[in-house]
C-alpha cells in the first residue's frame, strides 16, 4: 500500500517535471519559419515595393527582426570579455548601436530579395540552445547554407547567432571588436560605430532627396 502511494507521488512528480517541457513544445524551426515568412510577405508586398517606401519597408523588417532576434544576447556575446566591465547605460547604448550595425549590414541586403527559395533542413536542440539548419537556393542554383543558433527566452526561441557558409556572425564581430578595444579603447569602438551610423544616415538622406 505504502509502496503504491509512494509510486503515485513519484509519478505525479515526474508529470510535473515533464509539463514545462510539453508547454514550450513550440519548435524553434516553426518559430523561425513564421517570422521569416512574415519578412517575405513584407518584402513581396507590392504596396511597400513602391518608390519612397524604403523607410517604411525597412521599419517593418526591423520590427519583425526584433521579434525573432535577441540583439542584446548577440551584442553581449560579440563584446565577450569586454561586456562584464560595462555599466548598464553603456550596455544599453552598445546594444542599440550594434542593432543599427546589423541593420546596415543585413537588413539593407535582404531588400534585394527576389524570390530565392529557403529550405529548412532540420534542427538540433541541446538543453536551452538549438540550431536550425536552412539553405537558400539562389537563382543561379547556388546553395548557401545558413544556420540559426537559437536560445530559449521564456516560451520563445530567439536567434542569437547566424552562421552563413560556416562563418559565425558573433565570431566575426568578436574578433573585430576585440582588436579595436585592445589596440585603442572601448570608447574608440563606440565612437567608430556612431560615425559609421551617421555617415549611413547622411547617405540615405542624400539618396532619398535625389529622387
Amino acid at each position: 500500500m505504502t509502496i503504491g502511494r509512494r509510486g503515485l507521488v513519484f509519478a505525479a512528480g515526474l508529470v510535473l517535471l515533464l509539463v514545462p517541457a510539453e508547454v514550450r513544445a513550440v519548435q524553434p524551426t516553426d518559430q523561425l519559419r513564421t517570422q521569416i515568412d512574415r519578412v517575405l510577405r513584407v518584402l513581396e508586398d507590392p504596396e511597400l515595393k513602391k518608390e519612397g517606401k524604403v523607410k517604411a519597408r525597412r521599419a517593418a523588417v526591423r520590427k519583425i527582426a526584433n521579434d525573432i532576434f535577441d540583439f542584446s544576447e548577440t551584442a553581449k556575446r560579440s563584446l565577450a570579455r569586454h561586456w562584464p566591465p560595462r555599466t548598464p547605460a553603456e550596455r544599453e547604448e552598445f546594444v542599440t548601436l550594434f542593432a543599427d550595425l546589423l541593420e546596415r549590414g543585413y537588413i539593407s541586403k535582404i531588400e534585394v530579395y527576389g524570390g530565392e527559395k529557403i529550405a529548412y533542413l532540420g534542427e538540433t536542440i541541446e538543453g536551452d540552445l538549438a540550431t536550425v539548419r536552412t539553405k537558400i537556393t539562389t537563382k543561379q542554383q547556388t546553395d548557401i547554407p545558413i544556420d540559426y543558433r537559437m536560445l530559449v527566452r521564456g516560451e520563445k526561441w530567439l536567434v542569437y547567432d547566424v552562421i552563413i557558409e560556416g562563418v559565425s556572425l558573433i565570431a566575426n564581430y568578436r574578433t573585430q571588436f576585440n582588436k579595436i578595444i585592445t589596440t585603442s579603447s572601448y570608447q574608440e569602438l563606440v565612437r567608430r560605430m556612431k560615425t559609421k551610423q551617421e555617415e549611413f544616415d547622411e547617405d540615405e538622406r542624400k539618396r532619398t532627396s535625389q529622387r
Binding site: A80, I163, E165, G166, V167, A171
Partner: peptide, 28 residues
C-alpha cells in the same frame, strides 16, 4: 578558441557548444 564574456565556465568534461567548422576553400 575565442574567449567569451559569460560568467559561467565550461567544467572539466564539459562541452564547447559554439563551434565554427573550417571553411572549405575549394568548395567555396
Amino acid at each position: 578558441i575565442s574567449p567569451g564574456g559569460s560568467d559561467r565556465l565550461i567544467p572539466p568534461r564539459g562541452k564547447i557548444r559554439e563551434v565554427e567548422a573550417p571553411v572549405d576553400f575549394e568548395e567555396l
